[in-house]
Simulated scan of single mutants.
Amino acid sequence: MATPQDWAPYSSITDAAKVYLRDPELALEQLRAVVDLPEVTSFIMSRGSTDEQWGEALWQEVVLTDGRRLVMWRADDGLSSEGDRERRMLDVSVRTIVLSTISDHVLTAEYEVLEDGTRRLSDVTLRLYTQLLTRTRQKSATESDLYCESFRYHKSVDHGGLAQMQRLLQFGRVLSRCLA
């Protein structure tokens, strides 16, 4: 698979998708169905690949906010079996979460301290915790553990580079202002 161009220099989600995603038209069509793209206040993108028995599988993700919702588009290459016939598939989903369901938001930046005392951004992680229950586990007759859905987004020097780390910081800060 060809190495994509970096999406981070683009302020337009349309332009960024066209240079970064393998399936930009599909992503943009499905995102337009749930959000007016000019209303997007911030976005991030990720992609990666794995080696499968049938070849290289790609996953692609766009996460955006319009100030009211978190919208996530994801596409995963896969394999489907029908009888004794296998077919390559693209599994695509769009998920929308109202920002008011986010109960906790943690934006972490790590800086490497250089010998001359200056700092260089080396790692950014955004964690979002929701009020949406994914499962429970009964501990006793009167107590249960509740597990809520969470999301984690990560960029580093080796995974995305400086521009994508800065965009993840920007995305996290936009979300923080929207959650207030």
Rank of each mutant, 00 (worst) to 15 (best):
M1A: 14
A2F: 12
D6S: 15
Y20G: 01
D23S: 14
A27Y: 06
D36G: 15
T41K: 15
I44P: 01
I44C: 00
R47W: 03
G48S: 02
D51T: 12
G55P: 01
A57M: 01
V62H: 00
V63E: 00
V71D: 00
S80V: 08
S81G: 12
R88N: 09
M89W: 12
L90D: 03
L90H: 04
V92F: 06
V94E: 03
T96V: 03
T101C: 05
I102F: 06
S103C: 13
V106D: 10
A109K: 15
E110A: 09
E112M: 09
V113P: 12
D116T: 07
S122W: 04
D123F: 00
D123A: 00
D123V: 02
L126E: 01
L126F: 03
T130C: 01
Q131N: 14
L132S: 08
R137D: 04
S140G: 05
A141D: 13
T142D: 09
T142N: 11
E143W: 15
S144M: 12
L146Q: 15
Y147T: 06
H154A: 01
H154D: 02
K155M: 02
S156Y: 02
V157M: 08
V157Y: 11
G161R: 03
L162R: 00
Q166L: 07
R167Q: 13
L168Q: 06
L168A: 04
Q170K: 15
F171C: 10
R173I: 10
R177Y: 11
A180T: 14
